[in-house]
Design a protein around this nucleic acid. Structure first.
Lengths: 190, 190, 190, 190
DNA sequence: GATGAATGAGCATTCATTCAT
DNA sequence: GATGAATGAATGCTCATTCAT
């Protein structure tokens, strides 16, 4: 119901009707409306958190690139598995109230920290370009989120594998091929 | 009020109190609560729409790169100029209800169309990498949105110029420097 | 629970929890919430009813005065024995609903009738002053009730014997020593 | 409505219907259901508080006895003037919840203090019998309350003036004429 | 007999909207 | 045009009661 109607438009009546239980039963399992919503989000966050696997440069069986792609694949896969919940995450949970916004921010911050550390590690190994890792993190997460938002909200039909490949390509190469910008170390390559 | 409390938590009472008008006066100027919100969003969209300037490869005075950066700069600048409204755009307007989600989607679609055309043009000129322009559009917009979301919602302190530079760098080069991926035309560069 | 929280605030949940039985078990023994309350009150009334002993002026072993004091003592004692129940009687049972108010009224009416008859008997014997016995009854009961209310509700610390003595003194002599009032037969005594 | 049904049984719907206003209008003037009840009680207390006039033994125009009777008359009159409110005071407000019980207790305590001081003054003047003034206060208030309770709740038909006279007589002389009790200074008079 | 999960009628409260002044 | 008192539809939540196990 939250995915279909949004948090406020989803009435308890609809929720319990959809669940085929009585109103009172609902309150037996959830403190209040917010609680069930919070649980959905928390569980999604937990599931999502388990999707990440730390990149191991020493891994002999898989290249760093493969491991990164595997991570992207897992995240995309987890989120597309249950689209209703992903819709809730990307849509209903946003701007619900300051407390919830904080919750979201905290989650993304944690994910961001993981990603940032990976980027920092990657820079040492030379597999991540120079630059502010915090910015990379934000931009990367944003790109990922928007991609999934479009798929889930607009029904953008696209194979999971294609999504993964395109994201990876974007992260690898960006999309612009201009090289006269003021960006620090960029040199004319040809 | 919408920025401070969110759409639902912002009560008409608070809005009229903040505006120093009577409750009835509000309804003289706005059909209902949704109307004022819609107007805020519409105006923001209009302002934002005017920020874009079509990239002209023939322009003798500015390189394509400069024009792209100029576009990024204008968008970022417009959105950071009125952070309250940007907060509304990125937060309150999301997931408000299906009708509003559609509105957002339509706007981003229009922006996306513009961007996509630019990407397509750019590909012909060789300033945009090969690949699905729709995907590039989505990922680019996502990166941009997240960046601004972080600045506006989390108070990420950052110079506008730095933001612009980092976004440009990200779009130009991505962040990964791995080159053994399965991505189509990517060839080992060294 | 009724004494601690009052009738409405005492939830079945709390009652069964305190009784260490399941909710269903409760309804095995009591028709409904009101029934258990009614039983408590009825039992208290029964116990209280048994406290009264008819004053016998012929009794050679005890003076009328002693017998009256004994009655007061028994009532006070019975009510202070189980303060929780007394609290219920004097507080929760009042104003619960018209039906219950009637019940209370009926009980006090019965007690009143007993007391009134005693007063009437006493008048014949010259141990009760002239006047409306119904009024005496009401005023006597009121004085008694308030005394116990203060002890039970406000924790007025006071020896049972003192309470009994003071009540007896009050009933015997009143508290005023003015003698120029318009009250019928009152004559200047000294 | 509170007088007719009791606090809990009086539904907001009934209250607003009786007041011929809309549900919302009610909440414009009262925080919640409890607030209107509290206001009724507070106002009644205030009115009641103003009924008392300090007894002045120096008053050349009225005897102490007259002044006391005047006080009783005022209290009885005030309470019988608005029987619905008196019913609320004596019935609904009792045992509503601990907070309200405290409120009642505090009021009676204040009244009691006034009365107690009067009794103490009276003892010095010899118009109040020896004994614990606190007890006298409690017993006096109880007698008064019960009298009014019977009139208001049971519709005991009785002239105000008769009520006043009987109460005064009771306070003056008590009702018992036994004089062999254990009460301190009581001596056998015949 | 005991249990406690499920029930749903019932109710206080909120708040966007109206309209007489 | 401006006002703000009045409105009442809408809804989240409670809690006494039931009944299958």
């Amino acid at each position: 119901m939250f995915a279909k109607r949004g948090y406020h438009a989803a009435k308890i009546d609809e929720i319990v009707a959809a669940a085929n239980v009585a109103r009172g039963t609902f309150y037996l399992y959830f403190e209040d409306k917010r609680a069930i919503f919070e649980e959905i989000v928390d569980r999604a966050f937990a599931r999502l958190g388990m999707s990440f696997v730390r990149v191991d440069p020493e891994d002999a069986t898989r290249t760093v690139s493969e491991q990164i792609q595997e991570n992207i694949r897992r995240i995309v896969s987890t989120l597309l598995e249950d689209r209703a919940t992903t819709k809730i995450l990307l849509s209903d949970a946003v701007g619900l109230d300051p407390a919830f916004d904080r919750k979201l921010l905290v989650f993304y911050e944690e994910v961001g920290r993981l990603l940032e550390e990976s980027f920092a590690d990657g820079q040492k190994l030379g597999v991540v370009s120079e630059g502010d890792t915090k910015m990379m993190t934000i931009l990367t997460l944003g790109a990922l989120k928007e991609m999934l938002y479009q798929v889930v909200m607009r029904g953008l039909a696209m194979e999971e594998e294609t999504i993964v490949a395109e994201i990876f390509r974007f992260l690898s190469k960006g999309c612009l091929r201009v090289n006269d910008g003021p960006v620090g170390s960029v040199t004319r390559s040809a």
